[in-house]
Computed example of a mutant assay.
Amino acid sequence: MTTTSSAEAGLAGMRAELDLIDVQLLDTLKTRIDICVRIAEFKREHDVPMMQPHRIGIVQQRAARFGAEHGVDGTFLRRLYDLIIEETCRVEDLVIDGPAMDDAS
Rank of each mutant, 00 (worst) to 15 (best):
I33H: 07
E8R: 12
I58G: 01
D22V: 10
A40Q: 03
V72E: 02
T75F: 04
Q60E: 12
I33D: 10
E86D: 09
R62G: 10
G10P: 04
F42V: 06
A64C: 00
V59Y: 03
R65P: 00
S6W: 07
L80T: 06
S6A: 10
V37A: 03
Q24L: 10
D27S: 10
T2A: 12
T31K: 04
L18D: 05
R15E: 08
T4H: 12
D19M: 05
L80N: 03
I35P: 00
T2R: 14
P99S: 12
H70D: 01
D93P: 00
L25R: 10
E17G: 10
G57Y: 12
I58R: 14
K30Y: 04
V59D: 02
F66C: 03
E8D: 10
L11N: 08
R15K: 11
S6G: 00
V48L: 10
D34N: 09
P49L: 03
L11H: 09
C36W: 13
I33M: 14
G71Y: 01
L94C: 00
R78E: 06
S5G: 02
L25V: 09
E8K: 13
M101V: 15
D22C: 07
A63Q: 04
D73R: 06
D47I: 03
T4Y: 12
A104L: 15
A64S: 08
L26A: 10
Q24E: 07
S6F: 08
D34P: 00
D47N: 14
T2D: 11
P99Q: 14
L20G: 11
Q24G: 02
D97Y: 11
Q52K: 00
I39H: 07
D103A: 15
S105M: 09
I96D: 05
G71C: 00
G98D: 02
S5Q: 13
G13D: 09
G57H: 11
M14D: 04
F66R: 02
A104G: 00
R79C: 01
G67Q: 05
P99N: 08
D102Q: 11
H46T: 10
V95C: 00
A100W: 12
D19Y: 04
L77E: 07
A40I: 03
